[in-house]
Design a protein around this nucleic acid. Structure first.
Lengths: 247, 247
DNA sequence: TAGTGGTCTAGACCACGAC
DNA sequence: TCGTGGTCTAGACCACTAA
């Protein structure tokens, strides 16, 4: 319409539409149904692709949820929960709030092979148990977790064991393995198609990736875990203590 | 072209194009110039908007860099550096690798007002120093940082002081303030227009947001800091120690 | 069947950068 | 001046949901 024949379009329509939608989201409660795309585009004086680009931005970060054939709904970010507590000064690994369950996707035993042997500090021929599961909080997908661990450490472990409860607690009580420390990397990432489907978020939605290598009190490597946590539902809280002995 | 008259398009063209581009990126070194969008769209048998959607996905996460009037370049993710070390078991606050400098955007003194007074645990009438700066590593923007601190703690502090060196070290050496602990929240987010411009990344690019409240050895609140770190250049590494006294 | 979101196209015009 | 990316449009057709 007003393609700004000579004026510079200081704000792109897409940005203007996005800000408009963010206002709507803030004003209305979660779960509010937006008007149909075609109507909204007409009302805002933009084309449908332009409107859709703005909606796509917001649905990636969880502010809007699109449902094919039904409509587009608001999903206020305020419901995102603070889910990690911290024990002493460590970054908490398994959060404690909400009702956590898991759906096990994969539970296979195979020789480690070179890369995993390296990570787990075992020989490549030794069997490794690979567990992949979707972790749900109150029934809603929160994370995808893939755990590799030396099969010899956990004889008789079954998929069922990974569906509820605390894994470290299980290690301690059934196998007398006491986890002691871990090295963890956290980095921001985005979902690919498969991850998006499992987490129930759009492709290229922001997530937090954790990679963790855990050792027990005897120094054995217990697990190498890689997790993807939904960016729209998850945050990390931690307490820091500063080491003032050096610069 | 092949709009799939009856077949279901199992993979969207946008996804196919994105995967193709990711292959190209992996094969070619960083800084490689891609063909013009119009040529590439023709070659891949898709329209330019479709190609652009895929390019947009990849440029948000830093795999591609677009330069208006020049072209689109690859920017291999492998060059992203691991920049945080950790002292003992704390999440590192100021990383140590690379040459860190800062460009100060704002350096103002004003009454705290209610929200900041609350965070800093002072009275609303007391003056607060607000410093906003872009932090650069080897000259490239890495983070935006906004620090609020009680002005009374740091008399004679000047903007220049915030441009180089370690702030906590400055606090200790000039003001005899020794930071002791902090509570920190980390969550994934995305850039808005202003942040994108300052960091040199696209709008809606993934970032890590830190909010930190720091206290000194006497229990005073020293600062409330909010930082945005580029998701394509930053990761956190941390060592964890598990507290085995409870569940 | 009707209405919704999902995908894609062809082409227009603007703004920036290098020549 | 020309080639590049940046933005936007109008409209087509598909796929899913619900009545």
């Amino acid at each position: 319409m007003d393609q700004a024949p000579a004026r510079q379009p200081i704000t792109a329509k897409r940005d203007r539409v996005r800000h408009y939608l963010m206002d709507v989201i803030e004003r209305s409660g979660p779960g509010t149904l937006l008007p149909p795309e075609r109507d909204l585009a007409l009302e805002l004086g933009v084309s449908r692709p332009t409107l859709r680009a703005a909606i796509e931005d917001l649905s990636r970060i969880g502010l809007l949820v699109r449902q094919h054939g039904r409509g587009t709904f608001t999903h206020s970010p305020k419901v995102s929960q603070e889910l990690t507590g911290t024990a002493s000064n460590a970054l908490a690994v398994p959060p404690a709030e909400g009702n956590w369950t898991s759906r096990v996707l994969k539970f296979v035993r195979a020789p480690a092979g070179a890369p995993r042997a390296n990570r787990l500090n075992i020989s490549p021929a030794q069997p490794v148990l690979r567990v992949e599961r979707v972790r749900l909080v109150d029934g809603v997908p929160m994370a995808i977790e893939r755990i590799d661990l030396p099969a010899a450490l956990v004889p008789e472990l079954r998929a069922r064991d990974m569906e509820t409860g605390n894994f470290y607690q299980l290690l301690r009580e059934r196998y007398e393995i006491v986890v002691a420390d871990a090295v963890q990397i956290i980095e921001p990432s985005v979902t690919d198609e498969r991850e998006a489907a499992l987490l129930g978020v759009p492709v290229f939605a922001p997530v937090l990736m954790f990679e963790r290598t855990t050792r027990d009190t005897t120094g054995r490597t217990v697990e190498f875990a890689r997790s993807l946590y939904r960016g729209d539902r998850y945050r990390i809280t931690s307490k820091l203590r500063f080491d003032n002995t050096s610069g």
